[in-house]
């Protein structure tokens, strides 16, 4: 487990593949409804009704070690990305073991738990998502 004890988690049994977490995430981050650039991704097998994988940042800290500018840093207990000093080298994207980074217009983005109030958790009416 990573540096931080708390991170976004998903209960595989409760997820129904509604995709609302992806919609909310892309909208809150990019003002656009587009699951492809969501910072959480749901890979659901709807033929069998099984959540196969959720792409979620587990705050493991691997990206912190490779960031050359210090753009990635810990704030409020979570790993944040300060775009003003990010060089867009994308080293973090390559090293992330969870594929949790998204690149938009050449810049990396990652889940920062919306500053401590994750909107995907708020809009997950099944309670499948939580921070613990």
């Amino acid at each position: 487990m990573g540096l931080q004890s708390k991170h976004l988690r998903i209960d595989h049994k409760l997820c129904t593949d509604c995709g609302i977490c992806e919609l909310v995430c892309s909208f809150m981050k990019f003002k656009l409804f587009n699951p492809k650039i969501s910072l959480i991704k749901i890979n659901y097998n709807y033929e069998l009704g099984v959540l196969e994988r959720a792409v979620i940042c587990n705050q493991c800290g691997t990206c912190l070690k490779v960031c050359p500018t210090g753009a990635l840093h810990i704030a409020n207990g979570f790993i944040n990305l300060n775009h003003s000093i990010c060089s867009s080298c994308l080293a973090c994207v390559e090293v992330c073991p969870n594929d949790a980074f998204v690149v938009v217009d050449g810049k990396p983005y990652k889940c920062d738990l919306c500053g401590g109030s994750p909107q995907c958790v708020k809009y997950c009416t099944r309670g499948a998502l939580n921070v613990s």
Partner: peptide, 12 residues
């Protein structure tokens, strides 16, 4: 087997 949902639905 499981409870599912259409895309973008809170009723499910």
């Amino acid at each position: 087997v499981s409870r599912g949902s259409c895309f973008s639905c809170m009723i499910m």
